[in-house]
Design a protein around this nucleic acid. Sequence first.
DNA 1: CACTATACGGAACACGTATTCCGTTTGTGT
DNA 2: ACACAAACGGAATACGTGTTCCGTATAGTG
Lengths: 192, 192
Amino acid sequence: MRADARRNRESILAAARDLFAERGAGVEMSEVAERAGVGVGTLYRRFPDKDALVHELLGERFRELAACYQRRLSGEGSAWERLEGAIRDACAIQDRDRGLAEALSATGLEQHEPVARSTPGLLETMQRLVDEAVDEGSARADLTWEDLVMCLCGVGHTISCAEHLPGRWDRLLEIQLSGLRATAWEGPAAAP
Amino acid sequence: MRADARRNRESILAAARDLFAERGAGVEMSEVAERAGVGVGTLYRRFPDKDALVHELLGERFRELAACYQRRLSGEGSAWERLEGAIRDACAIQDRDRGLAEALSATGLEQHEPVARSTPGLLETMQRLVDEAVDEGSARADLTWEDLVMCLCGVGHTISCAEHLPGRWDRLLEIQLSGLRATAWEGPAAAP
DNA sequence: CACTATACGGAACACGTATTCCGTTTGTGT
DNA sequence: ACACAAACGGAATACGTGTTCCGTATAGTG
């Protein structure tokens, strides 16, 4: 691969990283090319299509997530504290990267599983964090990693919708976190 | 307005109602026209553009929601039972109408507020349900109707994403419901 | 320095969907 | 029955984006 080609590939990735983080996957290919200082032809020479580019960037974020989870898993504190920390990390990353938030949000549950599965350790680590908190008795007894994913998607969705409402999503996070806890009361019959 | 025009307007609304409920706002105008048994020209004679048609249908659903809330508000049971009932109603309606779920989900918080506000009583009733549950001490003390909207949007989003996963969204609903309750524990420090 | 494989830019193209236009048809009041 | 305003159908058009094509430029090699 020629040196200028390699340089352009990096420029494109950097430009796309910024744009996706800022405005999500809706950015146009021509805009990515312009910001990278290349023509669209060059962009398409490096990445076969838009999906390829998006997947590359999503991969980066998924690996970042996996690293966070791993760090939490082998960190200190109660199982609940570590699970909660991991969740907060994931939300913070989504808050920093609208592209990730939108991807989790828009691709939904089943579609994005393949991508997530291709990141070694991402789901497994999440599952272990959940299991430990369940065993500890601090999380809902029936909690699964799929519930977790669903909650994270929910926050991601709120982030990617609420452009002009910074910080509103953390309300949802608090509500969900307390919903993930083991509950003292059982069912709607227990109203005072 | 001529009789055939009125009839066509109804056919179009009926067709669009079905299609939107089934597949969301992504349906093509030509498809709506075909199902209604008219040409696209006729469709555009009755509704200036796609938005107008969608708003009409959204209006119907919002009024249905408002009626549900009203019924719950003046219904029997504890304030919590009524709030929970209203939430479950709203989710059930979204489950029946993908168009609504998608609209709540896709238009996000700020964008759909104008539409919701144009439905008299929708937000006010929701707020009163929340207030009563808070006063009763059964809901989180800091709960607002905006939190409620956010949670309902979250479920709507899950519904409109999970095409092939019927019934997965109710897990999210359960988690959120228990998160909306007044909690016995305070903050992450209380882990056992 | 010359030569060539590789890469480059960006205009042109492909495509899907909303929307318009206009020649034809039809309801309705006289 | 007649006239004509109103309505109809659906081919044609507008438009925004992703993607391809090809004439030109250039890095690397001997």
